[in-house]
Design a protein around this nucleic acid. Structure first.
Lengths: 186, 186
DNA sequence: CTTTTTACGTCAGCCATGTTGACATATTTT
DNA sequence: AAAATATGTCAACATGGCTGACGTAAAAAG
């Protein structure tokens, strides 16, 4: 039995708080991915395919290198997944006009359908959680998640380095062009 | 270029908001696990070992069945991981006195050390994010994450079904005994 | 006291997805 | 002409899920 003193210790409470967050992330992520995973396995695909489809859908005409930058896996791993998705007509590739080495990727009609089916449950989860928790909680959620991810990823989610409006700012000041295909505010 | 009308559409903004959350979860989780993964690979272990060690550490004298209930993987998958951890003296097993079929598991000294090393960076991340975001954001973060996870997991994180104080309430009203080894109030 | 259920453990094989290393080809940049 | 970039591909290996099939010890039920 842990003595009362230890629980009253602010250090103990802090540790407890941090571990709670670790566990919440684990359970939330585990449950968040389980539905799409199940759907995917029925059509012979896996979570890696979902990721590729998702980010291609979000970033039409994305290049392989850019996608690699998002996923942070090797090109060999991605290649396996991508070639299958292209073979099965979820993704189509065009050659870039400005630089003919680049293969711009887009979802096909079929790909869009799959993407929407896969994220449908995920969007529902988030929507429900957002509704139940309220707008203030949503902001807190975002703020904390941004604090957890590497700072090199934060630019994707709006202002951060300086005082930049959400307006036209996209590319990170040196890294690749990714997520966020829609810029300007109302 | 998406026309202004579509961006002004509340449905569009909602979809955008939801997808932002999906992406934040992806990036945060990816970065959150990368450090421990790297440490683990240096000693010939993987993320699955981390999970087992983590939850055994959090729930001393946990049984195999209980751990299976947390991880939601097959006993064969867990077995591979557990037997290695026992073999390499990160975890020790005792036979329960009340029910001699049960194998109660605990971290060894070595296991505790590894666990702390593995979560050190993760705790640092959370602590930094919490500090930067503030107490209100922390509450929002927790609320939203709980909304995202299956409701069957929410009991682990305090009140929910009714108006239960955080006091002695532990086990879920039917499911297994898990997480939260420390109960008592202030 | 037999039967059933529970809590393990284990062998064998399959699949998805990550890794490294080595090469090859086309195109653009220097 | 040479170097760097973007992409692809083959081969081999590790991790960590999965299913199916057994086997044993102990507890619970009849």
């Amino acid at each position: 039995m842990a003595d009362v003193k230890s629980m009253a210790d602010p250090q103990f409470l802090r540790e407890e708080e941090l571990r709670q967050a670790i566990e919440m992330l684990f359970f939330a992520y585990r449950d968040f991915t389980s539905e799409p995973d199940a759907m995917l396995s029925e059509i012979g695909l896996g979570r890696a395919h979902h990721r590729a489809i998702y980010f291609v859908g979000r970033n039409p005409d994305i290049t392989v290198t850019q996608l690699l930058g998002i996923l942070k896996i090797t090109k060999q791993s991605l290649s396996r997944v991508l070639s299958q998705l292209v073979r099965e007509r979820y993704i189509e590739q065009h050659t870039s006009d400005e630089d003919r080495r680049k293969r711009l990727m887009r979802l096909t009609e079929k790909g869009v359908e799959l993407e929407r089916a896969l994220t449908s449950n995920q969007r529902k989860r988030i929507a429900g959680a957002y509704e139940a928790a309220g707008a203030e909680a949503v902001q807190g959620f975002k703020d904390v998640l941004q604090g957890i991810m590497d700072s090199s990823d934060r630019w994707r989610f709006g202002l951060e380095p300086d005082g930049e409006g959400v307006a036209g700012a996209d590319q990170p000041p040196g890294e690749l062009a990714l997520t966020r295909s829609t810029g300007g505010g109302s």
